Simulated scan of single mutants.
Amino acid sequence: MSEQSNTLFVGNLPWALRGKDLIEIFSQYGEVTFARVILDRETKKSKGYGFVEFANAEDASKAKEEMHEAEINDRSIKIDYARPREENNNQ
């Protein structure tokens, strides 16, 4: 089983959502310290996924459990614990 983290990966997001929207949606589960929707570097359009960081792992766990496959603007979002970035990432 994946180790518990305080940062969640959130996928299949509606294209119009931004970080402030993620904070609003996820703050009902605890203190959100950071939220970001990943944008394409060139077009500045959403790539459809982002990250939400909570002040503690317990709140992240609760949000993951309750929000996985939840509907947001007719899209079923996918949530998992964020994994560390790969070393071969070109960013």
Rank of each mutant, 00 (worst) to 15 (best):
D21V: 00
A60H: 06
L13H: 06
E58S: 13
K44E: 06
E31R: 11
K44F: 03
S2K: 12
Q4A: 10
D59M: 06
N6I: 03
R18N: 11
W15Y: 15
L22D: 04
S76H: 14
F9K: 01
T43F: 10
S76Q: 15
I77W: 08
G50Q: 09
G11D: 01
V10F: 00
Q91S: 15
N56G: 09
A82Y: 03
D21F: 01
V32K: 04
G11L: 01
K78H: 12
P14W: 06
I23R: 06
E31I: 14
F51W: 10
Y81D: 07
M1A: 12
G50S: 12
A16W: 07
G19K: 03
L8A: 00
E53A: 05
A57F: 07
E86G: 13
K62G: 00
N6Q: 13
L8M: 01
E53Y: 05
D40F: 04
K62Y: 05
R36K: 11
K64H: 07
G30A: 13
G48S: 12
A60L: 11
T33Y: 03
K47D: 08
V37E: 09
R18E: 11
L8P: 01
I79W: 09
I77S: 02
S61H: 11
R75Y: 02
G48C: 09
E71D: 15
S61N: 12
R75P: 09
I79V: 15
E24T: 13
I38G: 03
V37F: 02
N6W: 01
A82S: 13
A63T: 04
I38S: 01
K20R: 12
M1Q: 05
D74Q: 15
I23N: 05
L13P: 06
G19D: 09
E69I: 00
S27F: 00
F26W: 07
S5M: 03
E87R: 08
K45S: 13
Y81I: 06
K47A: 02
R83K: 14
E58M: 02
Q91K: 13
D21A: 05
N88V: 03
Q4V: 10
A35Q: 05
F26M: 11
E53F: 01
Q28K: 12
H68T: 05
L39F: 04
N88I: 04
T33P: 03
A35V: 09
K47G: 05
Y29I: 08
S27C: 07
D74E: 15
I25G: 08
E31C: 08
A60P: 12
Y81F: 15
G30C: 04
E66M: 11
F26D: 07
N12H: 13
E71R: 14
E53S: 12
W15V: 08
S76G: 09
N12P: 02
A55K: 15
Q91A: 08
D59I: 02
R36S: 10
L17W: 05
R41V: 09
K62M: 10
A70T: 15
K78E: 12
K62N: 09
I38P: 04
V52R: 11
L8R: 01
N88L: 06
Q28W: 03
V37T: 06
Y81R: 10
R83T: 12
V37N: 08
V52K: 10
F9M: 03
K44D: 10
I25K: 13
Y29E: 06
E24L: 13
N89D: 12
V10Y: 00
F54R: 01
A57L: 05
H68G: 06
I77L: 03
L17C: 07
N90H: 10
D74S: 15
N73K: 14
A60Y: 03
K44M: 05
E42G: 08
Y29Q: 07
